[in-house]
Amino acid sequence: MNIKTRALKKSLWVYHLSTGSCNNCDIEILDCLSPRFDIERFGMVLVGSPKHADVLLITGIVTKKNLERVKEVYHETPKPCFVVAVGTCACSGNMFRSGYNMAGPLKNVIPVDVFIPGCPPGPAAIISAVVKLLNKLK
């Protein structure tokens, strides 16, 4: 394990990007911060810029107008970083797959490390996914 991954697993900073979601996954991500789930006990904090982030939580299908922005945000994130596709929309496109404004599922745009299916996945599912990610690093 090199120094970068060792430092990474201590405290993951999370940047959250919506690329065409319905808000549900976004609320559930925010719910992780609320007192019941309290994701900060794992050292995770939501940050305001991809430049500070270790993990990108991406929700929603990638719409055509957002395509370039997703690539740019991924480009701005310091590597190594993780990309987590939250919700069925980000994983596979859900029922919007046949829509004319869909630019493809997230995995075709940027490399994805973790998929969390569910519409929307509950906060418990999101936390468990990130913990699995941490365990994979060890």
Binding site: C25, K65, F96, N101
Partner: peptide
């Protein structure tokens, strides 16, 4: 930026399926 073409997708779904589709316009 969040345009997903829901009205058009709705035209390809069954009447009963559209309820699930419109549910996902907004999560709140």
């Amino acid at each position: 930026y969040n345009h997903r073409g829901i009205e058009k997708i709705s035209e390809t779904k069954h009447w009963d399926q559209v309820t699930f589709l419109v549910e996902r316009i907004c999560g709140i």
